[in-house]
Amino acid sequence: MIPTIPTSRSFRLIYGGYVLLFFLYLALPLTVVAVFAFNDSQFPSLPWEGFTWNWFFGEDRPQVGVFHERGILRAVGTSAFVATCVAALSVSVGTTNAFLFNRYEFRLKGVLYVLMLLPLVIPGIVLGISILVFSSTLANGIWDAARIDIQALRPGLLLVILGQFSFITTIATLVISARLQKFDRTLEEAALNLGATRLVAVRTITIPFLMPAMVGALVVAFLMSFENFNTTLMLVGSDAPLTIAMFDRLKEGSTPLLNAVSLLLMLGSSLLALVVILFQRR
């Protein structure tokens, strides 16, 4: 079953056909979402009523386009803010974690490493509720002790950011560690021999070497945060990020507006993915 082993023609045809079908299956839902963004009708379904740009640029009811729909625009802003915070935080902590596990030997290292991996195998909803429970325990405790109500500990953006950060950091750590392991430490020692301090050596030699991984982790963290649903659902307050806002609308019934948003999301994330690939290749 490799090209050098002769197989019957019909087997190759069936196999090729199966792979083709698989890719059709992958493409189908996304294609449908994209196509119906241009349907001149109130529903993203057949019959096809003709082509329109209204779901992007329309200004008047009933076809208000994405770029004139306040609620959606605000949700995009919220998501972008959350994703930026999560990406910055998780890459910072991911980098320090990578150095810690790569450079130091200490007791409980193995235990801490397994603990560090755990967020990946905890269901997102459970992560969400555990943080929700703990933050309200804190908030209630502070209220009972000092009669101060700390709004930040109630469901809202801070909790959403912390919730997403709690598992995205693991991914950032793994991505950055993988690159740090390939680093040749004699380069750093050379810098030390040439009179650099440890910090200067790390900043001028090691960090530039890690840059591709850090940028990659930054983009992955941003995308994961932008798309996250489960953890966010449990921690969200009144400012809904995009996925939650879309979910609420989808429950009420959908218009091609949601298709237009989805299409823009697809374009946005493919663009980001492309940037990463180009950056990595350079």
Partner: peptide, 25 residues
């Protein structure tokens, strides 16, 4: 294989809803 997963799970689910619902494709 990777492309569909750069897109939010919500969008993927929405795609299946458009395909499978009563008035769907």
């Amino acid at each position: 294989c990777l492309i569909p997963f750069y897109v939010s799970e919500l969008v993927r689910t929405f795609g299946w809803m458009i395909l499978l619902r009563e008035t769907g494709i």
